[in-house]
């Protein structure tokens, strides 16, 4: 009832949950070996920003459009092409539809 057969493999969510549970127990055990030097309310809890002062929390929030900035910049040639493709013009939407229709027509109908 739980095992999903795919012909070449299987998947059982219960085994997976059991493994995750055991892994968490293992991590918890390893965590116990750590040193307990942490003290609240001392210098230890402050963030270290290369000697700069910590800004107010509202200013520290990384905005969504700045996340993965490196990825989008390194893929900028792909993104500029895709941006050019998504013109937002309804005539172009129709044009894409006709292009796909024409390609399929050539592949299946003519050739």
């Amino acid at each position: 009832m739980f095992t999903l057969e795919s012909g070449s493999g299987f998947w059982n969510p219960l085994i997976w949950i059991l493994i995750i549970f055991i892994a968490f127990l293992l991590f918890y055990g390893i965590r116990g070996f750590g040193k307990s030097l942490y003290k609240k309310g001392t210098e230890q809890t402050k963030a270290f920003l290369s000697g700069n002062k910590e800004a107010a929390p509202e200013e520290m929030h990384v905005k969504a459009s700045n996340l993965y900035w490196g990825f989008t910049v390194s893929m900028s040639s792909l993104y500029s092409r895709l941006r050019k493709m998504h013109t937002g013009n309804v005539s172009d939407y129709l044009l894409w539809f006709i292009i796909v229709l024409a390609i399929l027509f050539l592949v299946i109908g003519v050739i």
Binding site: R83, H86, T87, G88, N89, V90, S91
Partner: peptide, 10 residues
């Protein structure tokens, strides 16, 4: 103009 009606793009 359909070219101006492009606030939704990308």
């Amino acid at each position: 103009d359909v070219q101006e009606m492009r606030r939704l793009k990308e």
